[in-house]
């Protein structure tokens, strides 16, 4: 099937074979975004994002891209950065509205559904454009950990592990090797760092920085940044495994 629809890609309307080209083009915007992965483990969820350091003048660890929503939800986005900020703002509004109405924290699946519906609305009208982001929703609530990824056309699924952005294919191959039913949060942090390092090959000359957040038992159900010392430990582990050319299936606790 042709991926360019002559005349049918100029607005949000169906092509003769039932495709929405504008919505599909939005995926192309995300494909060039920075690599972002989510891991759902036994007792929590990890979100990790690779940030290319485009200039020495950028302040390290500043300019975060993973947002907190309420206390127990984290949202990472990759693709158009401002679209991601918009998604996070919308998610916070939804969380507030849920709390106002029901007096409790919004469940993870509800948040994913609300955001999925919102994103889908932007594929319904020619007066708007679809979102140029993949959004990762990480939540920990009464029902345990949740991980969802919302695509630019509004589709969302729950995942054990998922990746998006430039290095998504390599990351996905690595994620498929993990055993999510036994993985604990601290080990998942190491694996996340390793996977981000593994995807980094294509632009080896550029500096990069990992932004990583987590939510789960380890954090008392609060979404927060992975502590610096743990992140550094994980990055050291990642460097050893990836750059040292060791087999990637080495035990996690060396």
């Amino acid at each position: 099937m042709s991926s360019i629809g002559t005349g049918y890609d100029l607005g949000l309307f169906f092509s003769p074979d039932g495709r929405l080209f504008q919505a599909e083009y939005a995926y192309k915007a995300v494909e060039n975004g920075s690599t972002c992965i989510g891991i759902k483990c036994q007792d929590g969820v990890i979100l990790a994002l690779e940030k290319i350091v485009i200039s020495k003048l950028l302040k390290p660890r500043a300019n975060p891209r993973i947002g907190s929503v309420g206390r127990h939800i984290g949202i990472a986005t990759t693709g158009f950065i401002p679209d991601g900020k918009h998604i996070v703002k919308r998610a916070r509004d939804e969380a507030n509205s849920w709390r106002d109405n029901y007096g409790s924290a919004v469940p993870g699946p509800v948040m994913a559904d609300r955001l999925g519906n919102y994103v889908q609305l932007f594929t319904c009208y020619s007066s708007v454009r679809p979102f140029g982001v993949m959004s990762f929703v990480a939540a920990y609530d009464d029902l345990g950990p949740h991980l969802y990824m919302i695509e630019p056309n509004g589709v969302y699924w729950g995942y054990n592990g998922i990746s998006a952005g430039k290095g998504r294919q390599i990351a996905r191959n690595e994620l498929e090797k993990l055993d999510f039913s036994t993985l604990k949060m601290k080990d998942a942090v190491k694996e996340a760092a390793r996977i981000i390092y593994a995807t980094h090959d294509e632009e080896h000359n550029k500096e990069h920085e990992i932004e990583m957040t987590w939510v789960g038992e380890e954090t008392n159900g609060i979404h927060t940044a992975v502590p610096d010392d743990l992140l550094q430990e994980a990055e050291a582990y990642a460097r050893r495994t990836v750059e040292g050319g060791e087999d990637e299936d080495v035990p996690m606790n060396e």
Binding site: P64, G67, S68, V69, G70, R71, R92, N96, R99, D100, G103, T224, A225
Partner: peptide, 15 residues
Amino acid sequence: QRILEDLEIKESNYG
């Protein structure tokens, strides 16, 4: 209490 909790969450979300 609700207003203050909203404030608390809003401020913590800035991180």
